[in-house]
């Protein structure tokens, strides 16, 4: 079971487990981190924005065009960083064991 290290909006760190084969968004949403995932993975709501830790950026599959466009729309209201991703587009797997993310602020 992959462990994901999560930094919440309040700065608190916790480790979440499980969710293999599911999007990271669902793990974060179900753990009450403030991630909503309203659109369910369509890249149309921007409510599952996270900052992936720098060392993980290149280890994730690249952003799709839809994800890129949603992040560009988000940039108008919240800070974007190199590790900005929509967590609905990150599928959890053993390969992501130890992934570290920070929940981005609400839009």
């Amino acid at each position: 079971m992959p462990d994901v290290r999560v930094t919440g909006r309040d700065g608190q760190e916790e480790t979440l487990q499980g969710g293999e084969g599911r999007p990271l968004m669902e793990l974060l949403r179900d753990a009450g981190t403030g991630v909503d995932g309203t659109c369910g993975g369509m890249c149309s709501c921007g409510t599952c924005h996270v900052y992936v830790a720098n060392e993980w950026i290149d280890r994730l599959p690249p952003r799709s065009e839809d994800e890129t466009l949603m992040l560009e729309a988000l940039a108008e209201v919240v800070e974007l960083r190199p590790g900005s991703r929509l967590s609905c587009q990150i599928e959890l797997s053993e390969a992501l064991q130890g992934l570290a993310v920070e929940v981005a602020p609400d839009a």
């Binding site: 659109c39 149309s44 709501c45 466009l69 949603m70 729309a73 988000l74 108008e76 839009a107």
Partner: peptide, 10 residues
């Protein structure tokens, strides 16, 4: 809604 779904602009 504060954000416009990208496809709406596309």
């Amino acid at each position: 809604g504060k954000l416009t779904p990208p496809i709406v602009k596309k």
